[in-house]
């Protein structure tokens, strides 16, 4: 199925000031398409969490939005450093965030579990030295 909308947002490592701009734009675009309520909120929260993760933990990457008639798909892909232990990273409360992220109110170890909770489909692939890819699907029907 062809996407109705495709957008790609580069996200720079440690750019705490801009963090969230991609998610704000994604939310705006979906709203313009008539997506609302619970789905819009879940996409917005998961998108913001994954964008923050790119800023806090990755060496840089991008966040892609694809909107299909029946679902919204978010893909976050970075260039490293990769997650050594995925089951540990998925655990609530476990975090490797630095002081800067914590001082902004993040790094509580809720990001990945919160993405999984908000998305209808959640997939994470990671390889140390290569990078991490997170794919999330949100049903529109």
């Amino acid at each position: 199925m062809e996407a109705l909308i495709h957008a790609s947002y580069p996200v720079a490592s440690a750019d705490y000031v801009s963090a969230g701009r991609a998610s704000a734009d994604i939310k705006k675009r979906l709203k313009q398409l008539g997506v609302g309520g619970d789905v819009l909120r879940r996409v917005a929260v998961a998108s913001y969490e994954v964008e923050l993760n790119l800023v806090i933990h990755s060496m840089g990457g991008h966040l892609d939005l694809d909107v299909y008639p029946d679902q919204v798909v978010l893909v976050s892909a970075d260039i490293g450093p990769g997650i050594p232990d995925l089951s540990l990273a998925m655990r609530e409360g476990w975090s490797t965030a630095n002081e800067e992220a914590r001082s902004l109110g993040f790094g509580a170890g809720m990001g990945l579990p919160n993405m999984k909770r908000n998305a209808d489909d959640f997939n994470i692939q990671s390889e140390v030295g290569k990078g991490t890819t997170i794919t999330m699907g949100f049903k529109l029907a």
């Binding site: 000031v17 963090a19 969490e49 902004l104 109110g105 993040f106 509580a108 990001g111 919160n114």
Partner: peptide
Amino acid sequence: MSDVLAFVDEKTVLITGLTNPH
């Protein structure tokens, strides 16, 4: 904000001492 994002799911009011853009 991590907790707010994880647990708040309605249009509510946030009381906070944090004043950053996030």
